[in-house]
């Protein structure tokens, strides 16, 4: 019996989060198989086939899997799981949406957002916004696991070519229908895979002022994030949110601007390699986790930082 990884892709290549899930899967057991589901995704299947640790790729091409809606995708996975002991996916919105539905159908618990594989049945996962780490042990033969992407390396590209075989079932529960998707973004890197992130909090005072951060981010090739307070205040959309209930990130450099450092925000960024905090309140808890704290008014400091970075670029 082996491990099945649910892939996310853009039809051409696998998402980095999936390549991290493949790394985690390889640490649990072998062989690792990957399910690529969607339409016109043969290239993504080829990318999966040449990823280190992957021994077989299952390709399910059918319009009902196009947007990975939970109902048809969980039906397919439940069907495939008769041949596997483990189902693994990254804890992305897709993974978190689909996997628990499969787990319940298999009558097993899901182990959410593991950060460490101790052995085949024992894993570590953060609870209470990362303020405690639980070591949990599964008592079932089949296991459904999501992984926290910041805790695992990206699986490498290899020259090998794993076998690709077509799968799919005709069963469509027909309970849901895709209407549309509005994806924001553009030139900037995605929050969860960015090497540098510049985030703003309530101290930014308005959505307009986020332009100051965008200018800095552009010079650093960084993504722009936000605290829950900034999202609550309506400055930026929810997909900017870094924290316990938003995205968990661990970039090389995290610059927190006008963010006080509530527990729920720290939960989403405290594993960043280098943390910079700019805040005028020298008592702000963000300074306790910052490597470089600057007590200053952000409306002076951020334009200064922008200028300094411009000098370096020249």
């Amino acid at each position: 019996m082996s491990i099945l990884v649910l892939a996310e892709h853009n039809n051409e290549i696998l998402k980095e989060a999936t390549k991290k899930a493949i790394t985690a899967a390889s640490q649990i057991d072998k062989p690792v198989h990957v399910l690529v589901a969607g339409t016109d995704c043969t290239n993504a299947a080829k990318d999966a086939a040449s990823t280190e640790g992957v021994e077989k790729v299952l390709l399910a091409e059918n319009t009902q899997y196009k947007n990975l809606l939970s109902e048809p995708t969980s039906e397919l996975l439940t069907d495939l799981m008769s041949e596997y002991d483990y189902l693994v996916s990254a804890a992305t919105t897709n993974g978190k949406n689909i996997l628990p539905r499969v787990a319940a159908k298999l009558d097993v618990s899901q182990i959410s957002e593991i950060i460490n594989v101790i052995d085949k049945k024992t894993f570590q996962r953060p609870i209470y916004a990362g303020n405690a780490i639980a070591t949990v042990e599964s008592s079932t033969d089949k296991n459904v696991i999501t992984i926290r992407t910041t805790a695992f390396e990206t699986a490498k590209e290899t020259n090998s070519n794993a076998e690709i075989s077509a799968v799919g079932i005709e069963k469509n529960p027909g309970l849901s229908e895709f209407i549309e998707e509005k994806v924001s973004g553009g030139e900037r890197p995605e929050l969860t895979s960015a090497g540098t992130i510049v985030s703003g909090g309530r101290g930014m005072q308005s959505g307009d002022n986020f332009k100051l951060l965008e200018s800095v981010a552009d010079k650093l090739g960084a993504a722009v994030g936000a605290s829950r307070a900034a999202v609550d205040a309506g400055f930026v959309p929810n997909e900017y949110q870094v924290g316990q209930t938003g995205k968990v990130v661990a970039p090389e450099l995290y610059i927190a601007v006008g963010i006080s450092g509530a527990i729920q925000h720290l939960a989403g960024m405290k594993d960043s390699k280098v943390i910079v905090a700019i805040n005028k309140d020298d008592e702000a808890p963000i300074f306790e986790v910052a490597d470089y704290g600057l007590v200053a008014d952000l409306f002076d400091a951020v334009p200064d930082l922008d200028k300094e970075l411009e000098k370096i670029q020249k």
């Binding site: 947007n67 809606l69 992305t92 919105t93 897709n94 027909g174 309970l175 849901s176 229908e177 895709f178 209407i179 549309e180 998707e181 509005k182 994806v183 924001s184 973004g185 995605e190 969860t192 959309p237 929810n238 997909e239 995205k247």
Partner: peptide, 12 residues
């Protein structure tokens, strides 16, 4: 709310 933005679906 999905990772990259917003998705709209119709549910029975």
């Amino acid at each position: 709310e999905i990772d990259g933005g917003l998705q709209t679906i119709k549910l029975a």
